[in-house]
Simulated assay, not measured.
Amino acid sequence: MTVWNSLRGLALGDAFGEQWFLRPTSEVDSSMAERRVAEGVWPWTDDTAMAQVLLAHLDSRGTVEQGALAAEFASAYEADPNRAYGGSMHGVLTAILAGEPWRAVTTSQFDGQGSWGNGAAMRVAPLGAWFAADLDAVVDQARLQALVTHAHPEAVAGAIAVAVAAATAVNGGEGLLDAVLDRTPNGEVATGLRRATRLRPALDPRHAAGTLGCGYRISAADTVPFAIWCAARHLDDLVEALWATASAGGDMDTTCAIVGGIVAARTGLDGVPAAWLAACEPLTARRPA
């Protein structure tokens, strides 16, 4: 149940955040949200599309098998490419569809550095919930799924951090930021998490974003620390967590997807307004047995 709740929370956060993507933070208010509910469905993006593929993969195989996962990501992209995939991901998935080996494709990105984008982190929270009983497995499986599309160490670190955050939320959430930092490889993501541990929980999220970033660079390093700080700040209230995250602006579909996947793994979606649930585009994935 926690795994399915994590996916549902991720999709809700993705769809909610997409309504405000890169808008001025002054526009992010509850009255406008209610008007947007009346306007129709909140569609989700590539965050949810790839998270659904990842969860279906785990449900089928029980572990990350990278070659198969790469093919499944590419097939989902081919079936529905208009989900706001990033530019580099269009290239990666198109190349995999054309038969190029996934490892060669991902390691050749950005002059051989690999992508350090936030895509491996945005989809991974349900994996953290899946393996929550074994944090070593959480770290290993998060790394494996990240490398399928993002070869840069910072992208991998961001995915590990989010997966550990989701697992920690499932296990009670105590000391979440410290628990995540303890398992995150050294680098810029870890440096951002250290900054996050020093921020007051009552700090305005917009000020926190000024210190940590909120996804304007679309990188793991300027996305993950802020998202995990927001999740830790509102670990028992999904709605407040999403409002706090969106209020900072930036890459809001991704930051809200990360937060939704972490917090909902703990809370479920019982406290979410019925209008939000009705507006959020339904998932296409099958609920795991």
Rank of each mutant, 00 (worst) to 15 (best):
M1R: 15
V3T: 06
W4H: 01
W4M: 11
G9D: 12
L12G: 00
D14Y: 01
D14E: 12
E18R: 09
Q19S: 08
W20Q: 09
F21A: 15
F21K: 15
P24S: 09
D29W: 13
D29S: 14
S31P: 06
A33D: 05
R36W: 13
V37G: 06
A38R: 15
A38M: 13
E39T: 10
G40H: 02
G40T: 11
P43A: 07
T45L: 04
D47K: 08
A49R: 05
A51S: 11
Q52K: 09
H57N: 10
S60C: 12
G62Q: 04
V64G: 01
Q66N: 07
G67P: 10
L69W: 03
A70L: 10
E72T: 09
E78G: 07
E78N: 09
A79K: 13
P81N: 06
A84G: 07
G86Y: 00
G87P: 04
M89V: 15
H90W: 04
V92G: 02
L93Y: 01
A98Q: 12
A98D: 14
G99N: 07
E100W: 02
P101W: 12
V105Y: 01
D111E: 12
Q113Y: 06
G117D: 02
G119L: 00
A120F: 08
P126N: 05
L127R: 00
G128Q: 04
V139L: 09
D140A: 15
Q141G: 00
A142K: 03
Q145M: 11
Q145V: 04
A146I: 07
T149P: 01
H150K: 12
H150G: 14
V156N: 02
V156F: 13
A157S: 04
A157Q: 00
G158A: 06
A159C: 08
I160A: 04
A165V: 04
L177F: 11
D178G: 08
D182G: 06
P185R: 08
P185W: 07
N186F: 12
R194I: 07
R195H: 13
A196E: 08
T197D: 08
R200D: 14
P201K: 11
P201R: 12
A202Y: 10
L203Y: 13
L203D: 11
R206H: 13
R206A: 14
R206S: 15
H207D: 13
G210T: 14
T211G: 11
T211P: 00
L212S: 01
Y216H: 09
I218N: 03
S219G: 01
A221T: 08
D222I: 06
V224Q: 08
V224I: 12
F226W: 05
A232M: 09
H234L: 12
H234E: 13
A241D: 09
W243M: 10
W243F: 14
W243V: 14
T245Q: 09
A264S: 14
R266L: 11
T267D: 07
D270R: 14
G271V: 15
A274L: 09
L277P: 06
L283Y: 03
A285R: 03
A285P: 04
R286K: 13
